[in-house]
């Protein structure tokens, strides 16, 4: 791939190149970008927006899906959900679960990525550790759940090694912390691998220049590494917040939202509405509320992107 050929700008064009009027140029480029976006847009419109619009529709009716006699009920479902203490309990738990998980994912992911990127360690050892570190990534949520249930059971290996008999998952005091820990274990490789790829993109000479200027490794980290990784970190945080907020299988299969309601999340709450109470209207309502929350996040993200440009 002859990058060099392309990277060398032609000064002639740069200076004299026909610069079309700004507006027309934008229009033209707009047409082009729609072309690039067309496959995405069509796919998302048909297979994502349509079902979502249907779900939004359900949230304004009652007796949807299985009964034929559904009626428009305005915001009644929203009132029901928003006045249910269970919903707020689930929201609180979800916030705790998400914020701790995401923060830990970032710290662990970045730490591991930096360690794995360290030039102090030989390449084969790095490759070996990289393989070990991605392991939690390779398993489906159901397996992660049964594995940790096994490890953390009162008679399990963890209690054996710690010489305790703690009910990690069954104790109302510990359960939320425990499922959060499991989620941290299961999710950090996403950050690690993405950041590892990002670290490769930081030009080595930026570090060298900083070193020559007398920057300590810590200063280089905060002044070179972090700013360079920022776009990726922001994307990662946003995605992880959204994904963690809808983590279902892991919670459902470890605690089922219990003991009592200490690990009830918005996802398990919604699931129970849909498949235990068969109230799809309320489930849809709860889903729409989650969607609205994430739209706030998304708007903030886009603002951030624009500010950065």
């Amino acid at each position: 791939m002859s990058i060099r050929t392309f990277t060398a700008p032609d000064p002639e064009t740069l200076v004299n190149g026909a610069q079309p009027p700004k507006k027309r140029r934008q229009l033209r480029r707009a047409g082009e970008s729609y072309g690039f976006l067309a496959p995405t847009l069509i796919l998302l419109l048909v297979l994502m927006i349509v079902p979502i619009v249907m779900v939004v529709g359900y949230s304004f009716q009652d007796n949807v899906i299985l009964k034929s006699s559904s009626e428009f009920t305005g915001i009644a479902n929203y009132v029901t959900v928003l006045t249910d203490p269970g919903f707020w309990k689930a929201t609180g738990n979800t916030l705790y679960f998400c914020l701790i998980s995401v923060a830990a994912h970032l710290v662990l992911g970045l730490t591991f990525a930096m360690l794995l990127n360290s030039r102090l360690i030989s390449a084969p050892s790095r490759a070996f550790f990289r393989a070990l570190y991605v392991l939690p990534w390779l398993f489906t949520a159901a397996v992660i759940a049964v594995l940790w249930r096994m490890l953390l059971s009162p008679n399990g290996i963890v209690n054996f090694l710690l010489d305790t008999d703690v009910e990690w998952l069954a104790s109302p005091q510990l359960a939320l912390g425990t499922v959060t820990f499991i989620n941290i274990w299961a999710g950090y490789p996403f950050f690690m691998v993405s950041l590892l790829a990002g670290l490769q993109g930081i030009p080595q000479d930026l570090h060298e220049a900083a070193s020559i200027d007398g920057a300590s490794p810590v200063q280089r980290f905060w002044n070179v590494t972090i700013p360079q990784l920022r776009p990726i970190i922001v994307s990662l945080l946003l995605l992880d917040l959204i994904w963690t907020s809808q983590q279902f299988a892991l919670i459902w299969l470890t605690t089922g939202g219990g003991p009592i309601d200490v690990t009830e999340m918005l996802s398990t709450y919604t699931y129970k509405l849909a498949f235990a109470n068969y109230d799809f209207s309320l489930a849809a309502t709860s889903a729409v509320l989650v969607l609205l929350l994430s739209m706030v996040l998304a708007v903030l993200y886009v603002r951030h992107q624009k500010a950065r440009d």
């Binding site: 026909a18 033209r28 047409g31 082009e32 729609y34 072309g35 067309a38 496959p39 069509i42």
Partner: peptide, 25 residues
């Protein structure tokens, strides 16, 4: 050159849509 480009851009747009349509079909 600008006509040339506009053409190409339009081609990109249509190719994008056409590819998607064809693959979905």
């Amino acid at each position: 050159m600008s006509t040339h480009r506009r053409m190409r851009n339009r081609v990109t747009l249509f190719t994008g849509i056409a590819t998607t349509a064809v693959s979905i079909v």
